[in-house]
Design a protein around this nucleic acid. Structure first.
Length: 845
RNA sequence: GGGCGCUUAGCUCAGCCCGGUUAGAGCGUCUCCCUUACAAGGAGAAGGCCGGGGGUUCGAAUCCCUCAGCGCCCACCA
């Protein structure tokens, strides 16, 4: 036994972090069978940014389950990954180094990175290869900082199971997964209108869209009718009038029914367009008749597709308008000259400027009715973007998801959701899906498509019959590697080949994290021991992306759910309950909090938050955690430094305390099994404070006294301490390991979780003895507090009134109560109403 | 507009599934106490028509209906 004189929390993180690493405490043993393993699909955090307390909270939740299951006897597979591919990294690299990627430039092997770190005013253009090198360089730095924080937090991950989403294995598995989709006929390349970010110049998927309210204006515009007359439409995007291909009204709308089938003429551009009917047209909106443009929004796409309308696209990929082509086939106009002149006024302008200019043109042309009416309306944005999305037709890889809706809803019902209502979030997302998954991105730092295209004699690619890479050669980069049967010199020359220039959506990789961590198609034995996994922990904001796509991939590839449990954490809000964001400057740095309060204290706060509910940062609560950790140190010191030798636990009070603890353990275990870590912590904590305030005070005099009765107290204290340390271990891994090391062998984190049935010393004991004793002691303390006297002041006479039964229980602990309360005479009287009367003496000396 | 969640002490939250003592905890506030594990501590007090309204029941924070407020997800770009 080696109990320090003055125990402290300082330095415990470093001390035990190193010890665990050296001892391999959390190392995964792959020889165990599937039934013995608990596998966690750990979220790989995005490394291109800083960690905040939200990470700390949700990773603590995961770690609690990992530690609990480990102590329950499972071999826990708890890997860690870093999500370093994708746009966030590119954006950070652009800002950090002051560069932009120009795929046309050749690779520069001697790029002066030091010069780049002092960004000049103009971004320096670098080659794709150099750009990717810079991405790798920066993410490597970020990953070191992340690892440091995860270690400090005490996340019991197996660091030998680390992966990155841009690493070889992730790229290989992403590419294998993609080729399998192609072979199953589930991935297809198609020219289709897609949501498009004009700044990032890439397609984005439905799952990455968010709505934002912005200022706009309704413009009422007059269209002429063929054969005379006019009609009016309302639009917030008049700059798309040149892309108008039809007008649409609801089929039941009597106002417009006579017009359906007739032709209208667009203002300025003089293009004849049909008036058509469709149920999506809302008679309540605007004038009840709308223009269909190619493409103003996703409703336009639906109309265009279902009504088989032609396309006249005017918005280019950078968001500016194209010059006019009126007069050409498909661009009919009654006055091509005027139409192209009008278009020339708009060409090269982005939407906003074009809108302003066309409003003036419409006004001059007397086609504008009244003035534009300002309005706040909701517009779709890419979640990482700054300008509204356009709908642009481009050739993209799509993955079929729509036809799996019903099956995926079924998969959702197979998963146990924690909390349960999160399953409804998943279902409502699946039900609302309306597009296949656009999986290609026109970006650079990501997993490329393992695909090339043959070039014909004129140098045009044959896009319909791609050359797929051989799975055995993956991962490959079609920009660097050569397809089978070709020579490097044939790249991009007629009769040769060209590589697919796109990369995959970052979720195309992330949706395979179970397969990546379990080494799918690389280590079949390991994969069979891990998949499907047991737990997916994550936050609720990415149910529609990470969670949904993972379920989809497992369904189509493995005909299975990817894991049996999904534990969904809420968000961490700042102390004013606002969502944290860097721009508000309210991000609290985790490292400072750890420094100030200790990792155990921060974990305590995180563990107090239930799954699925938002939690506010509460430094007071963190301080409470710190106090609990310190209390554990001191109470342990007391229990372990008693002079008396432990004997059998025979005293009724000691046995009653253990009986109470037994009930607490049963509840904590049940709560943990149900993924309710906060309840488990709460019941343990309540018992523990009572244990220190009441039980320790009650037995202190006896424990110091010597003899068999002292031995019983010391034995009970140690039994309780042993059990409490193990029960608190998932929550407070540092302080429990510290105390465990004073008197136990090995790591507490590899000890068995304490179960109620193991506390045999409590067999047949009555927990109420403990209750009654604590109650009387409390009453004595209350009298002394109300009298404003020291607890040392003796109570000359205490009379306890209660039922015969309860007085009998008190009798079993009379001496303990008398000594702890400094009571000279303790009398009892039978009474229907319980009560304690206290007569105080005077202060000694 | 649809779905989900929340509403209990000044604050943060338990309790509600499975109805039953005077509704709990922590923080904060106030009062007191240096007591040989702990002053980075301890003891105690005050503080609540359990969001509103109906109903079921001997009995409702708890079950049912309804309304309101807040939050999130989805739909909504004319």
């Amino acid at each position: 036994m080696d109990v320090p004189e003055k125990p402290s929390l300082d330095g415990l993180e470093a001390k035990w972090g190193e010890w665990w690493e050296a001892a391999g405490t959390y190392r995964f043993d792959r020889t165990r069978s599937r039934e013995e393993i608990y596998a966690i699909d750990t979220p790989p955090p995005t490394v291109s940014g800083s960690l905040h307390l939200g990470h700390v909270e949700s990773y603590t939740h995961t770690d609690l389950m990992a530690r609990f299951k480990r102590m329950r006897g499972y071999e826990v597979f708890y890997p860690i990954g870093w999500d370093d591919n994708g746009l966030p990294t590119e954006r950070r690299v652009q800002n950090y180094f002051g560069v932009r990627c120009d795929p046309m430039l050749p690779h520069d092997p001697n790029l002066d990175v030091a010069a780049l770190e002092r960004p000049s005013e103009e971004p320096v253009a670098v080659s794709r290869g150099n750009f990717i090198e810079l991405c790798e360089r920066l993410t490597a730095e970020d990953e070191r900082a992340f690892e440091d924080l995860f270690r400090k937090l005490g996340a019991s991950v197996d660091w030998t199971q680390m992966y990155t989403t841009i690493g070889d294995r992730s790229r290989r598995i992403s590419q294998v997964g993609f080729l399998r989709l192609v072979r199953k006929g589930l991935a297809y390349k198609a020219e289709a209108p897609t949501l498009w970010d004009v700044d990032f110049r890439t397609a984005v998927a439905q799952a990455e869209i968010e709505d934002r309210e912005v200022d706009g204006a309704y413009h009422r515009v007059t269209f002429a009718r063929e054969g005379g007359g006019t009609l009016e439409i309302e639009t917030s995007r008049p700059e798309l009038i040149p892309a108008c291909v039809a007008l649409v009204a609801h089929p039941d709308d009597e106002r417009y029914a006579p017009l359906v089938g007739t032709t209208a003429i667009t203002p300025l551009f003089r293009v004849p367009v049909p008036v058509v009917a469709h149920e999506l047209a809302d008679p309540e909106k605007g004038t009840g008749i709308a223009m269909i443009c190619t493409f103003g929004d996703v409703t336009d796409v639906t109309w265009w597709r279902e009504l088989k309308l032609p396309a006249r696209v005017v918005v280019r990929r950078d968001g500016t308008l194209a010059p006019g082509r009126f007069g050409e086939p498909g661009w009919e106009s009654l006055d091509p000259g005027a139409a192209n002149a009008a278009m020339a006024e708009l060409a090269g302008k982005a939407s906003k400027q074009a809108r302003r200019r066309i409003t003036e043109l419409l006004r001059e042309d007397r086609a504008l009715v009244g003035e534009p009416e300002p309005v706040r309306h909701v517009v779709k944005f890419y979640e990482k973007g700054d300008r509204p999305l356009e709908v642009i037709s481009s050739r993209q890889w799509f993955v079929e998801i729509l036809r799996f809706k019903q099956e995926l809803l079924g998969r959702g019902r197979e998963i146990a959701w924690h909390p349960g209502f999160m399953g409804a979030r998943f279902a409502s997302w699946v039900e609302g899906l309306n597009q296949d998954w656009a999986i290609s991105r026109q970006r650079y730092f990501g997993v490329p498509f393992p695909v090339w295209y043959r070039l014909d004699a004129t140098g045009e690619p044959d896009l319909d019959d791609p050359i797929l890479a051989d799975e055995a050669t993956l991962p490959i980069d079609p920009q660097a590697d050569v397809p089978p049967g070709f020579e490097p010199g044939q790249r991009d020359v007629p009769g040769g080949f060209t590589g697919d220039p796109d990369i995959m959506d970052t979720w195309a990789t992330s949706s395979l994290t179970p397969q990546i961590a379990a080494k799918w198609e690389e280590d079949p034995d390991l994969f069979a021991r891990l998949f499907p996994m047991d737990l997916r922990p994550q936050a609720h904001d990415i149910i529609r992306t990470w969670l949904f796509y993972t379920v989809y991939r497992a369904h189509v590839e493995h005909d299975s759910i990817p894991w049996t449990n999904a534990a969904i954490s809420g968000f961490v809000l700042d102390p004013d309950r606002k969502k944290m964001s860097k721009s508000k400057g309210n991000v609290v740095l985790p490292t400072e909090i750890f420094e100030r309060h200790s990792a155990d204290a921060v974990r305590y706060w995180a563990a107090s938050a239930r799954l699925g509910f938002d939690a506010a940062i509460d430094e007071q609560q963190i301080k409470v955690g710190r106090r609990l950790a310190i209390k554990i140190l001191n109470a342990s010191r007391f229990a372990l430094t008693m002079a008396a030798e432990p004997t059998a636990v025979i005293e009724p009070l000691d046995r009653a305390m253990l009986a109470t603890l037994r009930g607490v353990l049963a509840e904590a275990t049940e709560a943990f099994e149900a993924y309710e870590h906060a309840r488990a912590l709460a019941v343990l904590e309540r018992f523990f404070w009572g244990f220190t305030d009441d039980y320790l005070e009650l037995v202190k005099p006896r424990a110091y006294s010597g003899g068999a009765a002292a031995g019983s107290a010391v034995a009970a204290l140690r039994t309780a301490l042993d059990v409490l340390l193990r029960a608190f271990a998932p929550f407070l891994p540092y302080v429990t390991e510290e105390v465990w090391s004073w008197w136990r062998e090995g790591s507490v984190h590899r000890a068995a979780w304490p179960l109620a049935e193991h506390l045999t010393d409590a067999d047949g004991a009555d927990p109420e003895v403990y209750d009654v004793a604590a109650l009387v002691l409390g009453a004595v303390r209350k009298e002394k507090a109300l009298a404003h006297v020291s607890l040392r002041v003796p109570a000359t006479l205490v009379t306890v009134r209660d039922t015969t039964e309860r007085l009998g229980k008190l009798a079993m602990a009379t001496e303990d109560v008398r000594l702890a309360g400094n009571v000279e005479e303790l009398r009892t009287a039978e009474a229907p109403e319980p009560g304690v009367e206290v007569v105080l003496g005077t202060t000694p000396d």
